[in-house]
Design a protein around this nucleic acid. Sequence first.
DNA 1: GTAGTATATTGACAAACATCGATATACAGG
DNA 2: CCTGTATATCGATGTTTGTCAATATACTAC
Lengths: 121, 121
Amino acid sequence: MSKTLAILDRQLGDRCCDVSARPSRTHGEATSAASDFEHLAHPVRLQLLDVLARNEGRVCVCDLEAAVPVKQPTVSHHLRLLREAGLIESEKVGQWVYYRIRRDSARALRERVQQVLRAFA
Amino acid sequence: MSKTLAILDRQLGDRCCDVSARPSRTHGEATSAASDFEHLAHPVRLQLLDVLARNEGRVCVCDLEAAVPVKQPTVSHHLRLLREAGLIESEKVGQWVYYRIRRDSARALRERVQQVLRAFA
DNA sequence: GTAGTATATTGACAAACATCGATATACAGG
DNA sequence: CCTGTATATCGATGTTTGTCAATATACTAC
């Protein structure tokens, strides 16, 4: 009766695809969860977040540039993605732009990620 | 003297880019962490893992196909990526192929991910 | 003003990725 | 054998992503 039993009871020669295994989340929910992972799915972005997390509140772009193996426009590109994702914010001071990690967003992200992964392992 | 102080002490007009903010991980380490996230960064893969996690050990491809909004070759494609990542495994039974999640790998993945995210939030 | 520095944006390009139709392979049942 | 079903693979296509040189913008100092 339960969907698990329906699957277990299937024998050789039975019709397949009884469609008893349904996802617990809609595709839309999966898409938004996937976007959390996408933001983290690049080594440069992970390194940028790492540096920002370890240098509270005062890191300019050229410091970040020195920390990763890509050129300045690419650093700006990844910083923009992280900012659009809400994970970092910036403040212009004189000719520099200081970036910092948004701990609240990072924590919320971590909790959403943990919730997804708890269902798998 | 500490790198954090060096950054905080910088004043308007000072030279920027003292390269004092270094990543705590190499680019290689960041690349391997990023690949963990890449495997999870697609809604179809998340839905497949979800169904497999909730239906212990006996889900055939056509059941999975019914659970996601893409065609059968695309399901096979994503299953291959997940298998190559070590997150799932398959067993051929008659004309069907049953997939299951590898709980040990999923748990190891979760722990690596948690370790990365703990550094940010 | 001019010159120099820091950062963002643009535009072009290549590489990677997602998708699917068509086909191949393998198996089951007649 | 042949027919039908389940799954994988191939090949083509369109989309997204990452990268960087060149340029634009904004600021500082003179």
